[in-house]
C-alpha cells in the first residue's frame, strides 16, 4: 500500500534526524508506481542530505533516461514497450558510495534548469535574431534556422509547453503550443553549452 507506506516514511522524515534513506525510499515508492515527478522530488531531497549518494543519483539518471527513451519513441511515433528501471530500497546501514560512481551523469550542465535557460535564450534569439546561430551546432543549415525563426514568430514563450529529458549524451526537448503543434529538439553539449543539432516538426 503505497499511500500508507509513504505516509509512514513521511512521518519518520519529519521526526527523525536527517536520514537520506527516508527520502530515497519514498523516491523508490513513487518510482515503482511510475510517478516520476514525485520520485524525482524525493531523490533530489535525499541528495541534498547526502551528496555522496551514488545509488540515489543513479536512480535519478535512470528516470531521466527512461523518460527520454519514451519521449523519443513518442516523438517518432514508434510505440515501445519499455520496462521501467529497477529501484532499490536503502536500509539504515547503507554506505553511500562516492557520487563519482555515477560519473556519467555527474554533470552540472545536465539539469532541467540549465536546459530551460538555454531554451529560453534560444527563444529570445529567435525573436530578435541576435546570436541565433550560436544556439545551433556549427554545420546546422542557416536556411533551416531561418525557417524556424519564421515558424516561431509572434509566439509567446509563456504559451509554450516544454518537456525535457536527458539521455546519456543528449538532451531531448519537445516544445508544444496549445494547438498541439509540436517541435522536437535534440541537443548536445558543445563545450559548456547545449546546442541544437536536430529540429523536427512533429
Amino acid at each position: 500500500n503505497r499511500a500508507a507506506m509513504d505516509s509512514r516514511l513521511a512521518e519518520l522524515e519529519s521526526r527523525c534526524p536527517p536520514m537520506p534513506q527516508l527520502a530515497h525510499n519514498r523516491g523508490v515508492l513513487a518510482a515503482r508506481a511510475s510517478d516520476w515527478p514525485d520520485a524525482i522530488d524525493h531523490f533530489e531531497r535525499s541528495l541534498q542530505q547526502d551528496r555522496r549518494a551514488a545509488q540515489t543519483f543513479g536512480h535519478l539518471r535512470q528516470i531521466f533516461e527512461h523518460r527520454a527513451a519514451k519521449a523519443y519513441a513518442s516523438a517518432l511515433g514508434t510505440p515501445i514497450d519499455l520496462p521501467p528501471p529497477l529501484f532499490e530500497w536503502q536500509s539504515s546501514s547503507i554506505e553511500n558510495a562516492e557520487r563519482r560512481a555515477a560519473a556519467q551523469a555527474d554533470n552540472p550542465l545536465q539539469s532541467i534548469s540549465t536546459l530551460e535557460y538555454e531554451l529560453f535564450a534560444w527563444w529570445q534569439a529567435l525573436q530578435n535574431s541576435i546570436g541565433l546561430a550560436e544556439h545551433y551546432v556549427d554545420d546546422f543549415s542557416p536556411v533551416a534556422i531561418q525557417l524556424s525563426r519564421e515558424y516561431f514568430a509572434n509566439r509567446q514563450w509563456a504559451d509554450m509547453h516544454r518537456e525535457i529529458a536527458f539521455t546519456a549524451n543528449d538532451a531531448v526537448a519537445v516544445i508544444s503550443d496549445a494547438f498541439h503543434n509540436r517541435t522536437l529538439l535534440l541537443l548536445r553539449l558543445v563545450g559548456h553549452r547545449w546546442k541544437i543539432y536536430q529540429e523536427t516538426r512533429l
Binding site: 507506506m5 509512514r8 516514511l9 519518520l12 521526526r15 527523525c16 534526524p17 536520514m19 534513506q21 527516508l22 525510499n25 523508490v28 515508492l29 530500497w89 536503502q90 536500509s91 539504515s92 546501514s93
Partner: peptide
C-alpha cells in the same frame, strides 16, 4: 516529538523489511 537516531534506524529498517 523528535525520535532518536537509533529509534529512527530501527523504524527505517522495519519499513524496508515490509517493503522488500
Amino acid at each position: 516529538e523528535r525520535l532518536s537516531l537509533q529509534r529512527c534506524q530501527v523504524e527505517l529498517d522495519a519499513a524496508v523489511a515490509l517493503l522488500s
